[in-house]
Design a protein around this nucleic acid. Structure first.
Lengths: 238, 238
DNA sequence: CAGTATCCGATGCGATACTG
DNA sequence: CAGTATCGCATCGGATACTG
């Protein structure tokens, strides 16, 4: 594999040799959004086999993109990007931007899943807009297909410091209730459609005190009109 | 192949699905630097088989990245990037920058070849520095390995309007003569080493009138000290 | 020149089972 | 949980030959 582009000294070839392997961009995406443990990565790329993920991690380590350190306390390792690995952030961001602008038509029903959506909201949350008080949001998704990776009900618990994802009732009163068709919500969250349209059409309903609803929409990044939003890939503790 | 990253709606996945295939980044690099004809592309990616190149071009067309139009006059087609295809320029530039900074150690002896080097000089020439008069440069490379794609002697004919690559004596008096070890020259051109060192060491010799030599170094982008230079990928007529 | 068609060997990778 | 080992198939892609 390392001699993939032998005969070519161009920097594009050298970078592509390590980066443009199957699954690797998605693994890098996960590492850049903060995944550290083997199973964090698995959650982010659930359809990749364990064996292949392990293989890719070895290749990335060999290429100097990540470092593997044994976990203190429990089994397994932590995988973290080296400086060279962090250097791929602009590549991921450029791919993401292309996907935002040109990839809309490629999102099919099979691509939808609530896990990725909810964790995506967390990874790309607008932290500067987090509220001073605790804000609890309950999601109930309709139109959910792939049952395995797709729970219907989720919670986000947003505080000044963090946004937590929960699959069980977190024990706090719910401030905002979102009932939405999964496809509609995904498209709005990606900026492919405006929230206004989806609300008007009824494919998304958001209930709660006006100020809470607004705060939620800000934190998560839901906009009234379609928007190409540059997703930022910055490590966030998982 | 199009269902490669099914289950993932993320824009990074959508972009990677079309872009992160084997050879595709290099094909895109060629298209972005102005290649239009099948054999232009072959020259740029000589180790890719014809069958595979044809297949990739079809995939790119199907993905809306390029348009194929029959050639008026002669056989074959022209392949040109669509607007969506041009959207990959930032991705290529980000990969190139990564390769500039982190890919140095990966350039092995087998990667060297004069064809790519000389055409690379043309593709990434500093057009704003082109001289008012005609400047003819003769190259004689030492340490050339892969004989097939690597002629030892080349000429560049630089005018106000263009930089032409020749494999035969162009018939004009030679203003600058470059004798150089291929590896040394490649590394200096990429900015991995400084020209000063290579000249001192004797691995590169440049002869000619001082002003001609300086003009040549400017046009091609040879710098006294190591430099990370951002290669620009802008279509240039071939 | 600008590809297409066919063959066939390498390997990529998914599935399954196993381990500390 | 955090991987490793093994198997077997599918497909990728290189080599060669053919075509308008």
């Amino acid at each position: 594999m390392s001699k993939d582009y032998a005969g070519d000294f161009c920097p594009v070839a050298k970078a592509s040799e390590v980066f443009a392997q199957r699954w690797t961009p998605l693994v890098m995406r996960e590492l850049l959004t903060g995944a550290r443990r083997f199973n964090d990565l698995r959650n982010g790329v659930p359809l990749m086999s364990r064996a292949l993920l392990a293989q890719r991690l070895k290749e990335l380590e060999h290429a100097g993109i990540i470092e593997t350190v044994p976990c203190a306390g429990r089994a397994g390792h932590e995988y973290r990007l080296t400086v060279a690995g962090l250097g791929f952030r602009p590549v991921i961001e450029a791919l993401s931007l292309w996907g935002q602008v040109w990839g809309q038509g490629r999102v099919g029903p099979d691509d939808l899943n609530t896990t990725q959506l909810v964790w995506g909201m967390r990874h790309h949350a607008h932290r500067t807009d987090f509220p001073d008080r605790r804000l609890v949001v309950r999601f109930e998704f309709r139109g959910v297909r792939r049952t395995e990776m797709s729970r219907r009900v989720w919670w986000l618990v947003i505080t000044r410091a963090d946004m937590e994802v929960c699959v069980k009732y977190p024990g706090f009163a719910e401030d905002v209730l979102v009932r939405a068709d999964l496809g509609a919500f995904t498209r709005v969250w990606l900026g492919y459609r405006g929230l206004r349209d989806a609300l008007a059409e009824g494919s998304i309903e958001i209930e709660g005190k006006r100020s809470d609803v607004v705060a939620f929409e800000r934190c998560v990044g839901l906009f009234a009109e379609p928007t190409v939003k540059k997703l930022r890939f910055e490590p966030v503790a998982v």
